[in-house]
Computed example of a mutant assay.
Amino acid sequence: MTEHLSTTMKIQRARLDLTQAELAERAGVTRKSVNAIEAGHMVPSIILALKLAKVLGVTVEELFAIELRPN
């Protein structure tokens, strides 16, 4: 089993009717970074995870979770 970071970021963005670009601007990152995190291609730093959670009005635990996947 391998660990994988899952995120509800896309759902949380939709709940607030935010585009990736709007979320990125509010969190102080690029849209490409938001896209990469949502797609599972990038693991955010702790600081970025906290910023994203704050902008989206949720806890880090609501935004990110560790999933175990078969190898």
Rank of each mutant, 00 (worst) to 15 (best):
Glu3Gly: 09
Glu3Asn: 10
His4Ile: 10
His4Gln: 15
His4Asp: 04
His4Pro: 00
His4Cys: 10
Leu5Cys: 10
Leu5Gly: 05
Thr7Ser: 12
Thr7Arg: 01
Thr8Trp: 13
Met9Cys: 07
Met9His: 14
Ile11Gln: 11
Gln12Asp: 12
Arg13Trp: 06
Arg13Thr: 01
Ala14Gly: 10
Leu16Arg: 11
Asp17Thr: 11
Asp17Val: 11
Asp17Ser: 14
Asp17Met: 13
Leu18His: 15
Leu18Gln: 14
Leu18Thr: 04
Leu18Arg: 12
Leu18Ala: 04
Gln20Cys: 08
Ala21Leu: 14
Ala21Gly: 09
Ala21Arg: 15
Glu22Arg: 07
Glu22Asp: 07
Glu25Trp: 02
Glu25Cys: 12
Arg26Val: 13
Arg26Gln: 11
Arg26Gly: 04
Gly28Asp: 11
Thr30Pro: 04
Thr30Val: 06
Arg31Ile: 15
Arg31Asp: 05
Lys32Asn: 07
Ser33Asp: 05
Val34Leu: 02
Asn35Gly: 12
Asn35Ala: 11
Ala36Lys: 14
Ala36Ser: 09
Ile37Asp: 01
Glu38Arg: 07
Gly40Pro: 12
Gly40Val: 05
His41Ser: 10
Met42Arg: 04
Val43Glu: 09
Pro44Ser: 08
Ile46Tyr: 13
Ile46Asn: 11
Leu48Pro: 05
Leu48Trp: 07
Leu48Tyr: 14
Leu48Gly: 02
Leu48Ile: 10
Ala49His: 03
Lys51Thr: 06
Lys51Ser: 06
Lys51Tyr: 12
Leu52Gly: 00
Leu52Glu: 05
Ala53Lys: 03
Lys54Trp: 03
Lys54Ile: 06
Lys54Val: 01
Leu56Val: 06
Leu56Thr: 08
Gly57Leu: 13
Gly57Asp: 13
Val58Asn: 00
Val58Thr: 03
Val60Tyr: 05
Glu61Ser: 04
Glu61Gln: 06
Glu61Asp: 10
Glu62Lys: 12
Glu62Leu: 13
Glu62Pro: 02
Leu63Gln: 01
Leu63Pro: 00
Leu63Val: 01
Leu63Ser: 06
Phe64Arg: 01
Ala65Leu: 07
Ile66Tyr: 01
Ile66Trp: 02
Ile66Gln: 05
Glu67Thr: 08
Leu68Asn: 12
Leu68Pro: 05
Asn71Lys: 15
Asn71Met: 14
